[in-house]
């Protein structure tokens, strides 16, 4: 069963991170391949994602069920494919941690900022700007995701899923972090 973990430090207090992530509507569109999601209850929702793993470029519907809602520390969930034989789950954990020192990178001028923005736009990647000063509080955000394709094709699909999951997981965590740092700084 492919399982990936990505961890990143957000220069924002844990309560603020939790306030953001506890509402899936806030971050759902940040998921790679996100099409839509429908909230059915506080613990259940159906997600429509477009996956592209080699020969399988599919729109997948996944039923998400929250199994542990333990704010502001952790949320755990299961995923069940509605139109594909795939199951999985994951955990999002939030831990207070020491703030990172501000990045030593030189301050970017307007042209460099434009280039960084263009790069992010073209490559779909998150360029988190360096913080001007060390935040007073920080949170380690760790996202773990596992998926297991069933059926006869399972071994092949799992082999294809594995390399696709890691960047998707990292991308989500970094987008959440970038969004929180940007909005927190604005306040």
């Amino acid at each position: 069963m492919p399982e990936v973990t990505h961890s990143t430090v957000v220069g924002v207090p844990r309560d603020a991170v939790w306030a953001f992530v506890k509402d899936m509507d806030n971050w759902a569109p940040m998921l790679t391949g996100y099409q839509k999601h429908v909230r059915e209850s506080d613990t259940d929702s159906v997600w429509t994602l477009k996956g592209d793993v080699g020969i399988l470029a599919r729109v997948v519907e996944l039923a998400a069920h929250v199994t542990e809602w333990c704010g502001p520390e952790r949320v755990s969930f299961t995923l069940t494919g509605q139109n594909e034989p795939v199951e999985g789950g994951g955990t999002l954990t939030l831990e207070p941690c020491e703030p990172s020192a501000p990045a030593a990178a030189p301050r970017m001028g307007p042209f460099a900022r434009l280039l960084a923005w263009l790069f992010a736009l073209l490559h779909g990647k998150v360029a988190r700007p360096a913080l001007a000063e060390a935040p007073r509080e920080a949170t380690r955000l760790t996202f773990t995701l596992r998926m297991d394709a069933g059926g006869a094709m399972g071994p092949l699909v799992n082999a294809m899923l594995a390399p696709a999951m890691s960047p998707a997981c990292a991308d989500l965590a970094e987008k959440i972090a970038a969004h929180l740092e940007q909005t927190h700084r604005a306040h």
Partner: peptide, 15 residues
Amino acid sequence: HIRGWDFALMGKRFR
């Protein structure tokens, strides 16, 4: 005969 394909081998080859 897709049910008879060796998907374990294909998965290994993909990796």
